[in-house]
Design a protein around this nucleic acid. Structure first.
Length: 432
RNA sequence: GGUGGGAUUCCCGAGUGGCCAAAGGGAUCAGACUGUAAAUCUGACGCGCGAGCUUCGGUGGUUCGAAUCCACCUCCCACCA
């Protein structure tokens, strides 16, 4: 490890958007082990890529000897954070939020070490929020907030100024709840640093104020930058929507492919954000890539590192196994068990009923299987000889010949068909 | 409350009675080139293999024929009070 302090490293990685006095924070972190927290609200049954940077950030602090608290927002998730949201959100039921909270807990614990007693803490703000009664809340906590300040926050400003959408009292109260979390964690665990996305700045400073007023303690805050892409499109989205951390929702293979497809213009920045490789290593990689002709190394390093972080060695192996099989040339050296494995590893696959194929055009068959979004795309691909079944290209004239193309005697090992549409879309059909 | 403007296919945005499934751009998908890049070029882009079917805020109407004209309704925007 280099001589850099944690803060210097984070800055070198571009991971700091805003922070309370840098000088004081630097000093505070140097004094010894600091307890810090980051909250994750259960807005779905899985975390997604947007949560990854803060999650890894907790781990970065832990690696430097600090103690992270991962806070699951079982309470705040019931209310909904209005920060920079254009519209009021739909409330989710208590059971749903509780269930989602559990999902998040499981995921978070894979990233951070909760083992030894001085290690990380997993908390749920439902524990100290649910039991509080209205009058106590209003008198003991509410009294510390002036509406003037609350209204002035940039994160709710547009909602307050907009005539059409507005903001409910419920969501408006969110910042008080989050501030209360900080104060509670400060009291219970001596937590003195909160981190979060850059949209959380207002909520974090609110918590710092409340902690000072109620606990007489000095607390700090830091926000992480919003991850942007060089082409202006939203980071973390694919054709299928969000990229989830749950292997059941985004397979390790799809996850690996997502990173492998990172544009050159973003890849070194992402390496700094999403991996634990040192800044020097990443800079060296960038230099080496620039000097070499052809394909850069960076994407595969990024894909490897992040997939391992999220899905472990097994997930990474599965993803690489599929990738090698599909993109390294020919499939003929795959064994029967390899085929079986591909399906289990997360390659999109489905069962095929040959008997029902006589009347089914390829366009329908493939779009139903999810290889393309509609028949037109399949037709287009057929016209360009871009549909490949077990290595044989199909044309438009084959559209009505599905029964022939997928005849059992043509199947690999008597039951597999690898269908490729274009260069990147693969689908495995298994005879029923 | 008053007056004027607007709502078009994923997004932006043309279209003011037939030649409109609807210009153009963006996004997206595929092909060439490449590195499973970028840039560029080509094609597709409401749904359907096809015949054909369903669209232009909503509901009715005029007409042989309406995204385009009329009536009412809903929602946005601007100005006035």
């Amino acid at each position: 490890m280099s001589e850099m302090t944690l803060l210097q490293d984070l800055k070198a990685r571009g991971l700091v958007a805003q922070m309370t006095s840098e000088e004081e924070l630097e000093k505070h972190l140097a004094e010894g082990s600091v307890t810090l927290y980051c909250g994750f609200d259960p807005t779905a049954d899985s975390l997604h890529l947007g949560h990854l940077v803060p999650l890894l950030m907790l781990k970065r602090f832990q690696d430097y000897g600090h103690r992270p608290i991962a806070l699951v927002g079982g309470a705040t998730g019931l209310i909904g954070d209005p920060s920079f949201k254009a519209q009021e959100r739909q409330l989710n039921s208590g059971e749903v939020v509780a269930e989602w909270s559990n999902c998040l807990k499981g995921q978070i614990s894979r990233f951070i070490d909760f083992n030894d007693e001085s290690g990380a803490i997993l908390a749920n703000n439902y524990d100290w929020t649910s039991g509080i009664d209205t009058l106590t809340f209003l008198r003991d906590i509410g009294k510390h907030f002036t509406v003037n300040k609350m209204i002035a926050k940039e994160s709710v400003k547009q909602r307050i100024e907009r005539e059409d959408s507005g903001i409910s009292f419920t969501e408006f109260t969110y910042q008080i709840l989050q501030s209360f979390d900080y104060q509670q964690l400060n009291k219970a665990y001596g937590c003195t640093l909160q981190i979060g996305g850059s949209d959380q700045w207002g909520n974090i400073t609110g918590g710092i104020d409340l902690t000072r007023r109620m606990n007489g303690a000095q607390a700090h805050g830091m926000t992480l930058p919003l991850i942007t892409k060089s082409d202006g499109t939203k980071f973390g989205k694919t054709e299928g929507g969000a990229v989830w951390l749950d292997a059941a929702k985004t397979s390790p293979y799809a996850f690996y492919q997502f990173w492998l497809n990172t544009p050159d213009a973003d890849v070194y920045r992402f390496l700094k954000y999403f991996t634990f490789l040192s800044v020097e290593e990443i800079d060296a990689l960038e230099k080496a890539d620039a000097e070499r002709q052809g394909r850069p190394e960076a994407q595969s390093v990024l894909a490897r590192e992040v997939t391992r972080l999220v899905h472990g060695d097994d997930g990474l192996l599965a993803a690489q196994r599929i990738t090698d099989a599909l993109f390294s040339g020919d499939l003929s050296d795959l064994s029967e068990t390899d085929y079986e494995q591909l399906g289990q590893d997360g390659l999109p696959s489905s069962e095929l009923d040959v008997a029902a194929l006589a009347e089914t055009p390829m366009t329908t068959l493939l779009s139903d299987a999810g290889v393309a979004t509609n028949g037109k795309q399949v037709k287009d691909a057929l016209q360009r000889q871009a549909v490949i079944v077990n290595g044989n290209a199909c044309g438009v004239e084959d559209n009505m010949k599905a029964a022939e193309i997928f005849a059992a005697e043509r199947a690999v090992f008597g039951r597999f068909f690898m269908v490729k549409l274009g260069k990147k879309k693969h689908h495995l059909f298994k005879l029923a």
